[in-house]
């Protein structure tokens, strides 16, 4: 069983469209994990039927028991996040501002403050339109993706893949370079880096590759919209050479991606031979590289 993670530092590079195409091409050989929880869009292309839904708790926030509270104000004084203002003469925690440090609970002389786990969203096990399994999640407002949620989604996907004897786990990785990405990459066998030839695209590619390199994960790169700026595409290719990253493919700027998405399809299902061929070849290369 091999775990393949698709990442891109920057948003809007087409990462999810490419991941979903791979998910379709892999068909019954793969379990899919959507760890891009901040913009979890994969379900729009995979049209999953939810089989199991579980509340997700993460992080703690403070809660004041008004019966015990004497409004002495110590909690409000020590709170560095101004999260405990006086509302109608009662100190009240503003959930969105509370960082969950627990300092207030420790200094409250009346022991009126407890820290409780927050329900920040749900995670799901679903069956997609081609009947493979998708593990995904949805977060509430102000809730942040975390290493914990990514690890949870990946763990479920792993268990299913093991039980059903699947060859691949395809992971739509989280954006950025923080804790969720570390968790997305941790345990992966291969990383597919998706980028676009713009200054910000190259900049973010370099940043995210630092992590991949540190984790000693073999990587390949897909340059999307490659014909939009040939100079920059050459710079990307140069970077790939220097770092010995496999250049999996260059995809042209093509509105078919969007047109396919509009009808809820991936590009490999949509009628477009050139792009489809490129993605089929890309997936074959990824399979060769990972095995």
């Amino acid at each position: 069983m091999k775990e393949i993670v698709i990442i891109s530092g920057k948003g809007g590079t087409g990462k999810t469209s490419i991941t979903a195409s791979f998910a379709i091409l892999a068909g019954s050989e793969a379990v899919i994990a959507d760890c891009d929880v901040d913009a979890a869009d994969m379900h729009l292309l995979m049209q999953p039927v939810i089989k199991k839904s579980v509340d997700f708790y993460s992080g703690v926030i403070a809660l004041i028991d008004e019966n015990k509270c004497t409004n002495c104000g110590i909690c409000a004084d020590i709170c560095r996040f101004n999260a405990i203002p006086l509302v109608d003469n009662q100190h009240t925690v503003k959930d969105l501002d509370c960082e969950g440090c627990g300092y207030c609970a420790k200094v409250c002389p009346e022991k009126a403050i407890t820290m409780y786990e927050q329900n920040v969203g749900d995670w799901f096990i679903s069956q997609t339109k081609i009947e493979n399994t998708l593990v995904h999640a949805k977060l509430g407002i102000g809730a942040e993706n975390s290493g914990k949620l990514v690890a949870k989604v990946k763990k479920e996907a792993n268990q299913i893949a093991e039980k059903e004897d699947k060859e691949y786990i395809i992971v739509d990785g989280s954006p950025g370079i923080g804790c969720p990405v570390v968790s997305s990459l941790s345990g992966a066998n291969y990383a597919v880096l998706v980028t676009e030839p713009s200054m910000s695209g190259l900049h973010d590619l370099k940043r995210v590759y630092e992590l991949v390199k540190k984790f000693n994960i073999k990587a390949g790169c897909i340059i999307n919209k490659s014909d939009i700026n040939l100079d920059m595409t050459n710079k990307v290719i140069q970077f790939l050479k220097e770092e010995s990253i496999t250049h999996i493919s260059s995809l042209p700027y093509d509105e078919s991606f969007t047109k396919a998405m509009t009808v809820g399809e991936t590009i490999v299902e949509y009628d477009h031979s050139e792009l489809k061929d490129l993605l089929v070849k890309s997936w074959e290369i990824v399979k060769l590289e990972v095995n």
């Binding site: 993460s58 975390s146 290493g147 914990k148 949620l149 690890a151 949870k152 763990k155 804790c179």
Partner: peptide
């Protein structure tokens, strides 16, 4: 450790 959001 799976209960830890960050700092694992």
């Amino acid at each position: 450790i799976e209960n830890e959001a960050h700092g694992a």
